[in-house]
Simulated scan of single mutants.
Amino acid sequence: MTSSLCPFAAATHAVDLIHNHLRQDTGVHRDQLPDGSPVWVVGGYEAVANLLADHRMSAAKSDSTTKFRGQNLPRALDMNLLNIDGEQHRRVRQLATAAFAPEHHTAHKRVVADAAKRLVADLPATGELDLMSGLCEPLPPRVIGTLLGIPKDKLGQFQTAARPMFAVDTSKEGDAIQGALGSMLMLVADAIGDKRQHPGGDMLSGWIAARDGEDRLSEEELISLAFATIIGGFENVTALTALVIDEAVRFRSAETPVAVDAADSGSLPKLVREIIGDVAPVNYALRRFPLEDIEVNGITIPRGETVILSLRSANTDPSRGARPDLAFGRGRHYCIGASLAETEAVEALRYAFLRWPRLRPMKERSALALRRSWLTYSLAELSVYAG
């Protein structure tokens, strides 16, 4: 049951090989996280999809029987949607989801389109372009910052504080992680304090009203909600947008190029959705803890032990067929910002193709540098040529 390939290898282009291997045998493997913590790793569409939606699989670290601590967040950041479950999760998620509801999608798209258009306009018209530093990295902070109501002059500090939290091995990056967490806690608390004095029509002001007016959020839940929105909306969306652009540029540059009309409001979102299903950057869902002994493909996983679900092995599973991809998860922990993330990828691609109709890749993808993470398959560079 032990995988012969390291499932937590970082900065490798061999992610499909690793995750396809996780489907072998029973699809249930015993291994260790980089910090030495024992885990069960589960692969394959059927098992992963079922466990994501299983009410017996908790995201709350308090349900761990092996003293799992993860990044050991301070309580004011730890009470976020990724780390709570049950009635508390339902209450906080209901409040959070309202800010991402369909009635806000048009307004969100305007924010995203404006940010993408401005970033693209600031880059050279021809020659070699770095779309990572020029577009993919700055876009998510601008979007989330605007929607949350964070002052523009603070966004760089938020982005700097968020980055170490995606370290491949938090046990070896302790000082950097703890420093980043302290900075993030101060930044979020300051932003909330500012919004209490100067409320607006942004997400933070709405959540503060729920906390201070209706008392439906604790102060820790409020801070943690803002924290999770920032973390989820920065690095993961950067990785997603970069892969979508890289894949689409390669489509166009292939011997049999795929026609992509950047001005067509219908075809581009469809293409991006298909690309996300194929190359979504998140390798694993957040760890889960069974609330009772559970059986997966004939293997019993004891209550409270750490379970890591391979989203990549599920999405690339031939047996998936026409069933939905699991790029943004499934069930009660499905990513509430999925629609916004897709919109960012669509608009970034749209304005890139409108500005540079003849983009070409500078390197094979296998030659591109990667960020050091096992959680995501994330490009560290995106050099293209605009002829």
Rank of each mutant, 00 (worst) to 15 (best):
residue 271 L to S: 05
residue 271 L to F: 05
residue 272 V to R: 11
residue 272 V to D: 06
residue 273 R to S: 14
residue 273 R to A: 15
residue 273 R to W: 02
residue 273 R to K: 14
residue 273 R to I: 11
residue 274 E to C: 06
residue 274 E to I: 12
residue 274 E to K: 14
residue 275 I to Y: 05
residue 275 I to R: 07
residue 275 I to T: 13
residue 276 I to A: 08
residue 276 I to Y: 06
residue 279 V to Q: 06
residue 279 V to P: 00
residue 279 V to A: 08
residue 279 V to N: 00
residue 279 V to T: 14
residue 281 P to E: 07
residue 282 V to M: 13
residue 282 V to N: 02
residue 285 A to G: 07
residue 285 A to I: 10
residue 286 L to H: 04
residue 287 R to I: 15
residue 287 R to E: 01
residue 287 R to T: 14
residue 288 R to D: 03
residue 289 F to K: 09
residue 289 F to E: 02
residue 289 F to N: 03
residue 290 P to H: 06
residue 290 P to M: 08
residue 290 P to W: 07
residue 291 L to N: 04
residue 291 L to P: 00
residue 292 E to N: 01
residue 292 E to I: 10
residue 293 D to G: 06
residue 295 E to C: 13
residue 295 E to F: 04
residue 296 V to D: 01
residue 298 G to E: 05
residue 300 T to A: 14
residue 300 T to L: 13
residue 300 T to I: 15
residue 300 T to K: 14
residue 301 I to N: 07
residue 301 I to E: 08
residue 301 I to M: 07
residue 301 I to H: 05
residue 301 I to W: 07
residue 302 P to W: 12
residue 302 P to Y: 11
residue 302 P to Q: 11
residue 303 R to S: 08
residue 304 G to P: 02
residue 304 G to I: 12
residue 304 G to E: 00
residue 305 E to K: 13
residue 307 V to H: 01
residue 307 V to F: 03
residue 308 I to S: 10
residue 309 L to Q: 03
residue 310 S to H: 04
residue 310 S to G: 05
residue 310 S to L: 07
residue 311 L to M: 06
residue 312 R to M: 03
residue 312 R to D: 00
residue 312 R to S: 04
residue 313 S to H: 02
residue 313 S to I: 08
residue 313 S to V: 05
residue 314 A to Y: 01
residue 314 A to M: 03
residue 314 A to W: 02
residue 315 N to K: 04
residue 317 D to G: 12
residue 317 D to M: 13
residue 318 P to A: 10
residue 318 P to N: 05
residue 319 S to T: 15
residue 319 S to P: 00
residue 319 S to Y: 06
residue 320 R to E: 10
residue 320 R to K: 15
residue 321 G to H: 04
residue 321 G to T: 12
residue 322 A to S: 14
residue 324 P to I: 14
residue 325 D to K: 04
residue 325 D to I: 08
residue 325 D to Y: 08
residue 326 L to A: 07
residue 327 A to I: 11
residue 327 A to S: 15
residue 327 A to N: 01
residue 327 A to D: 00
residue 327 A to W: 04
residue 328 F to H: 09
residue 328 F to P: 04
residue 328 F to R: 09
residue 328 F to T: 12
residue 329 G to I: 14
residue 331 G to H: 09
residue 331 G to K: 11
residue 331 G to C: 09
residue 331 G to S: 10
residue 332 R to V: 15
residue 333 H to N: 03
residue 333 H to M: 02
residue 333 H to S: 06
residue 333 H to L: 01
residue 334 Y to H: 15
residue 334 Y to S: 02
residue 335 C to Y: 04
residue 336 I to N: 00
residue 336 I to K: 01
residue 336 I to M: 14
residue 336 I to C: 03
residue 338 A to V: 06
residue 338 A to P: 04
residue 338 A to R: 01
residue 339 S to D: 12
residue 339 S to P: 00
residue 340 L to I: 11
residue 340 L to F: 11
residue 340 L to Y: 07
residue 340 L to H: 08
residue 341 A to K: 13
residue 341 A to V: 13
residue 341 A to E: 08
residue 342 E to C: 11
residue 342 E to H: 04
residue 343 T to H: 00
residue 344 E to P: 00
residue 344 E to I: 12
residue 344 E to W: 04
residue 346 V to H: 06
residue 347 E to Y: 08
residue 347 E to T: 08
